[in-house]
């Protein structure tokens, strides 16, 4: 497997609490990999270690073969430019318009100065996420789903190699969740960007992911393609999957009765 990110024996503690305990996981280049698991199992901690804003206690994180765990801050910033990060609540700058939000990484990260070129890229990205003409709106004027899509557009502006999605469908209704999952698929298929998603949305995960890792007790307990993970025998994973798919079955039955 050609892994763009490989995590080896990752350990991270906060005081006496060991959140990650020897986690191993490969994230294949150009594919969508999802990490699923219960709340508080350390999924966000894993993301922060991968992107280098948190330093592991032990272990290594190889990005394109380069171990970022021991790098000085300046070098970490260089490697971090390969990543985009779509936050759970989009984390748009609320004092800036949508256009300024998308132009922000162009100006501050890529050092672009040509206003017309920046405006053109902003327009293109907004058209790509099917929200043309909202450059002048402020984030507070957008719905939750729109904000998430603008957040994705902002990360795409600098054309990252790897895009991290932190709970992209949390707080959205099923229709909007589906549209965000479709957007992740498009990001991967049209730009060839490696997508790493952490999610509670098990059904959505099985629809979009090429590879799934199940995180529990600070380590990956099961990993593989969706079929392999669905057949895994880990008791917590079985319960996790059963609950999710029972919910789905109940939803379908309700629809049939109607």
């Amino acid at each position: 497997m050609d892994a763009i990110v490989s995590v080896r024996n990752l350990t991270k503690s906060f005081g006496p609490v060991r959140v990650l305990q020897g986690l191993d996981m490969d994230f294949p280049r150009g594919k969508i990999t999802s990490i699923i698991g219960q709340s508080g199992t350390g999924k966000s901690v894993l993301f922060k270690n991968i992107i280098g804003i948190m330093t592991p206690d032990e272990g290594s994180i190889l990005v394109d073969g380069e171990d970022i765990a021991g790098l000085p801050e300046g070098e970490k910033r260089r490697v971090r430019r390969k990543f985009g990060y779509a936050f759970q609540d989009a984390a748009l700058f609320d004092s800036m318009t949508v256009g300024e939000n998308i132009a922000f990484p162009l100006r501050e990260v890529l050092g672009m100065k040509d206003r017309k070129a920046m405006q053109r890229i902003v327009r293109e990205k907004l058209e790509w996420i099917d929200l043309p003409g909202i450059e002048g709106k402020f984030p507070s004027e957008l719905s939750g789903g729109m904000r998430k899509r603008v957040g994705v557009a902002r990360t795409l502006a600098v054309e990252p190699d790897i895009l991290l999605f932190d709970e992209p469908t949390t707080g959205l209704d099923p229709v909007l969740s589906e549209s965000i999952n479709a957007l992740i698929r498009r990001v991967n298929e049209e730009f060839g960007i490696t997508c790493i998603v952490i999610s509670h949305d098990i059904i959505g995960t099985f629809h979009i992911a090429h590879r799934i890792g199940f995180l529990a007790d600070g380590a990956i307990q099961a990993a593989g393609d969706p079929g392999e993970v669905a057949r895994a025998e880990h008791p917590i994973l079985r319960k996790f999957l059963q609950n999710s798919f029972t919910d789905l079955r109940l939803d379908c039955e309700d629809e049939e009765e109607e």
Binding site: I53, R77, R80, F83, Y85, F87, F104, V109, V158
Partner: peptide, 9 residues
Amino acid sequence: QLDAMETMS
């Protein structure tokens, strides 16, 4: 928003 800035270096 501060975390977002940090992730953008």
